[in-house]
Every structure is written in structure tokens, then in C-alpha cells.
Amino acid sequence: MNASPRRKELTRLAAQLFVQEGFDRTTVRMLAQEMGIKSGSLFHHFRDKQEILAAVIEEGTQNALVIARRALDNGPSHPEARLRAMARAHLETLFADRNAHVVALFEWRRLAPDASAHLSHLRDAYEALWLGVIDDALAAGVIQGDRFLVSRFILGALNWTVRWYNPEGPQAPDDLADELVAMIMAGRGDQA
């Protein structure tokens, strides 16, 4: 997709409006007004509202991949440390680019089938990073459980923080990540 600075700015503004109003309730007129352009001018940058939604999700998912890969490439190799690094990277992504990720989490189902198919490779690549880290942690005995369920529990818990976490509050995102990893590690003791 076109990565011009103007298009990126329009995508950021659209993400904000999609979070505030929801994708279905957001009109082209509302988008143009938020972006400070005429409705017709919007179509110089995007074909339609669907393309705007796809651009928001694509940008957010690409940013998540970059941050996660950087955390793994520059981080320690021990499975527990890698798990913490991924949890921290996930929260960094959520809070640094909150609107794009809220849209990806809650509006993905609104994507047209062709856009969903196009963007699935990015989502799958991100999930593959997580699965690799989880597999290493399971193999090392750092955590226990079913791989599928562990991945869903971890990502679900991290993703839900966009609903309740207050960045102005007493806990930093790294504290949340460390607490989550501590909780999932707590279950690794002997089972009765």
C-alpha cells in the first residue's frame, strides 16, 4: 500500500475515528471532516472506506511485527526472558499505537474477504513469533499447558488491557508484562 506521509496521517486519523464511532457508524463524510479534507478528496488517497480500514489494520500489524522482532532479536535467549520480551513488546505496541490495534482487534470482522485474506499473512506472522516463544517456554518447562490455549490466554489477556489499563496509573506496561508472565509461570509446579 501507498506509504506517503499524508496517507499515514489520514490512516492515523481514521483509526481514531473508528475507535470513537465504530467502523459501521463512521461515514465517509465524518472521515473527511476529521481529516480536514472534502469527501471527494478522500478518494485521491483511498478507493473506499474498506481500503481505509485495511490500511489502519495493516499499519498497526506491521508495527507490531517490527517491535516484536526487535525485542526478540535484541533480547536474551532464555525462554522466560523471551516470553517477557514478547509480552512487553505486545504492550508497547498496544499503547504506542493504541487506535490501530483497537481497530484491528475489534473491527477485523468488518474487513472485506479479499482484504482479510491479504492481511492474514501479517497476523499469522505475528502469531508465529508468539508460538515460537511459547513452544520454547513449554519445552524448557518454564510454563505448562496446551500450546493453543496458552497462546490464546496470553494474547487475550494482553489485548484486553486496551479496555482497562490506565497509562497514567501506578503500573508501567513492563510491570503488567512481568505480572502476566509471573502468573502463567505460577502454574508450572507439581499438580495434585
Rank of each mutant, 00 (worst) to 15 (best):
P76T: 09
M86N: 00
I67C: 05
D190K: 14
Q171V: 08
G132V: 04
E9L: 15
A177G: 01
V102T: 11
D24V: 08
L111A: 02
N74R: 06
R29Q: 10
G60E: 01
A64K: 09
V56E: 01
N166R: 12
E59N: 07
H45T: 00
F18C: 01
M185W: 06
P113A: 05
N74M: 02
Q20T: 10
T26R: 09
E59L: 12
W164K: 07
A115S: 12
Q62K: 12
D178M: 10
A14F: 04
L122K: 10
D190E: 15
F153L: 15
I143R: 06
L42K: 05
R109N: 15
L149H: 11
L42C: 06
A128S: 14
V19W: 07
L65G: 07
A140S: 13
E107M: 15
R25L: 12
G132R: 13
L180D: 01
L111F: 01
A172P: 04
G36M: 06
Q50E: 09
W164T: 14
A68R: 10
D190W: 11
G75N: 05
H121Y: 13
P5M: 10
P113E: 04
A89I: 03
L17P: 02
A115W: 11
L10M: 15
M183W: 14
R123L: 10
H121R: 14
P5C: 08
D114H: 13
E179V: 10
M30Q: 13
H45N: 10
L91D: 02
D48T: 00
A125H: 09
L131R: 14
R70L: 08
D135K: 09
G169N: 05
R29E: 13
L158N: 03
I154E: 02
G141M: 12
P173F: 06
L105A: 14
G132C: 07
R188P: 13
N74V: 03
N99V: 02
D175K: 14
L149V: 15
V56K: 03
M86W: 03
